[in-house]
Amino acid sequence: MRFILGFIGAVFAIVLLISMISGISEWVTNPPSPLAAEEFHKHPEPLHLASDGPFGKFDKAQLQRGFQVYSEVCSACHSLSLVSFRDLAGLGYSEAEIKKIASDWKTQVPSINPDTGEAATRKALPSDTFPAPFPNEVAARAANNNALPPDLSLITKAREGGAAYVHSLLTGYQNQPAELLKKFPDAKTPQGLHYNPYFANLNIAMPPPLTANGQVTYADGTPATVDQMSKDVSAFLVWTAEPNLTTRRAAGLAVVIFLLIGTILGYLAYHQLWDEAKRTVRPTGPLDPENQAKSRRAKAKAGVAG
């Protein structure tokens, strides 16, 4: 049997080596041509938010500004389908304010006419989730040059880089570098797309959403630069992706401290128990008090202190 198994192992190894050799020869004879998306793609620039780090907390003023950017700019195309108006309490809005935000929301909630049963809309309530700007995917694509604006509820969790990616993407629109066109003449950004080195394939369907300083007017007087607006909306989207973030960390800190103390106590108790194991579990062992006494007597007899 060992011979058969050895044979099987050798067969697998040989096929792997054949695969490897053919892979290498393919690589040598026909080296893969570099792609523009590989060379010019940029990783997100670091972004520092109040919610970063194990002890970070949300900056509610910033979240409110970010919510303002979402509602005045992003919400024209992007839904926020997992978030309810009532969740805005986490941003520091009062119940009355939330009610007003909900009923003033530009898109209404689909409902039925109570008399005729026909499709109708009604004003949103705090218990509703944010109504989507488009009734369905087809409508969303039709209005956006066949591109689907993704839902933003979880966007900072669903993209490598999270909030930093969102911020870099929003501020990263630029003209296609001449160098890129020189190297890859075929990689010209197609009509209707926009060059953005932070986007995976470099050409994004979303037109630059934040274009001018002062595009929104912040109630708290913060200057609404494009960078500031991008930062604020990124922070807001960290919150939408995980409203429980600060609760989670606070609970985590308590649990970690508790477990740390418990583990140390457990370790000490364990050590104490085992240090005596050899002496007490086996009363006839060499560390048994009687034997130790004998040892001490022998040492004393031999004139050794101890």
Binding site: F258, I261, G262, L265, G266, A269, L273, R279, T280, P289
Partner: peptide
């Protein structure tokens, strides 16, 4: 555990030992 505590240590030791075990188990 406290049964296994031998007679080697004095009263003090027994109490410290019990404290550790009780604390660890309570945790």
């Amino acid at each position: 555990v406290s049964q296994t505590a031998g007679p080697i240590d004095g009263e003090e030791g027994v109490r410290r030992r019990d404290f550790l075990n009780v604390a660890a188990v309570s945790f």
